[in-house]
């Protein structure tokens, strides 16, 4: 483990929001940095979970980093992001500081939800991150409502909504997509198809396997996207944002990816519902390796620079851990606060 860096060097990690605000397309190195940050951060989450510093449910994003990073890199700072319970990666990509995410996971007062939400409920009002939500499919209508509010006010933002492929069998998904298409709302519904709803394979849960076709029921534009290729994800979401901003047309994206870990920290990565061989096959298309290959072809790769970057991001993860560990538990008085606004 790299030794802890000083605060000043950690704070120089550019936030994704700042590069978006400047209107600059992220470089391949920026995208790699964000994916690697998620990877290194979540490796520490797994460690913290094993040590009992993180409790409850903890769903890791490792393997799916290109989806959150690519999609969110296509957004503007004033757009909205809403997600399911597997939300660490999107929260980091959107720019919630690693420190406050780790503090939330540790159940501490400096957490982004003051220690009251935990892994599944990361929120940050300042950057329009509308949460991690814990009921499968339950937040999809909320995204439609955000789209409704954008149209109501005559804005040109979009709402990007992440959910897993298992949610497409849920009534909330269909109700939400129907209204978005009917009312022409600027929402991008992004299915992270990681092939398994907990331990149930897509083919055992959905009557059709090409689930992007679900959009046909609502005459909604849709695409199947390679979710291990961060650039492909970014491009697809950019196209969807153009439809949303220009024509207020929603889009359904089926982004095909794979999680390299178990459904949550309480199950093995393979052995029951999927084989080790299958997992190893998918790991050959690790999103970080896929981008690395592109960068090597483009002459953008330097082992020295990448080693330095990796060390830097390990230090960021260590800094987040140290910050969370030093943060106080919420005061007991906080128990009854935030039930109502008065």
């Amino acid at each position: 483990m790299a030794k802890k860096k000083s605060e000043s060097s950690v704070s120089t990690v550019p936030s994704p929001a700042s590069s978006r605000a400047a209107g600059v397309a992220p470089s391949h190195t920026d995208l790699l940095r964000q994916m690697l940050l998620i990877r290194r951060f979540e490796e520490r989450c797994a460690e913290a979970y094993a040590l009992g510093k993180i409790g409850g449910f903890c769903h890791l994003y490792i393997g799916q980093e290109a989806v959150g990073v690519g999609a969110i890199s296509a957004l503007r700072a004033d757009d909205y992001v809403i997600s399911s319970y597997r939300d660490h990666g999107q929260a980091l990509a959107r720019g919630i500081p690693p420190r406050t995410i780790m503090a939330e996971l540790f159940g501490r007062v400096d957490g982004c939800s003051k220690g009251k939400g935990g892994s599944m409920h990361l929120f940050d009002r300042n950057i329009n991150f509308l949460g991690g939500h814990g009921i499968v499919g339950g937040h999809i209508p909320l995204a439609t409502g955000v789209g409704f509010a954008i149209k109501y006010r005559g804005g040109d933002q979009v709402c990007l909504c992440f959910f897993g492929e298992a949610a497409v069998n849920n009534g909330a998904f269909h109700e939400a997509l129907n209204m978005a298409a009917l009312w022409k709302l600027p929402v991008i519904y992004l299915i992270e198809n990681n092939r398994y709803g907990m331990g149930t394979a897509l083919e055992r849960a959905s009557a059709i396997n090409d689930i992007a076709e679900r959009a046909c029921s609502y005459d909604m534009p849709n695409e199947v996207v390679d979710g291990q290729d961060v650039l492909a994800v970014r491009d697809a979401v950019l196209r969807a944002t153009q439809r949303a901003r220009g024509e207020h047309t929603p889009t359904l994206l089926e982004v095909r990816t794979y999680r390299f870990m178990g459904h949550s920290m309480s199950d093995a990565a393979s052995g029951t519902y999927r084989t080790k061989e299958e997992l190893e096959e998918y790991m050959k298309r690790d999103p970080i390796i896929v981008l690395r290959t592109t960068m090597e072809k483009n002459g953008e790769w330097s082992d020295t620079a990448m080693t330095a970057l990796d060390e830097e991001l390990k230090a960021v993860a260590q800094d987040a851990w140290d910050f969370a560990d030093a943060s106080a538990e919420p005061a007991v008085e906080a128990l009854t606060e935030d039930v109502y606004v008065w």
Partner: peptide
Amino acid sequence: LGFAGVGVGAAMVGL
């Protein structure tokens, strides 16, 4: 379920 959720989403962002 759908329109109740639409309401909550709209309320999250200021309506």
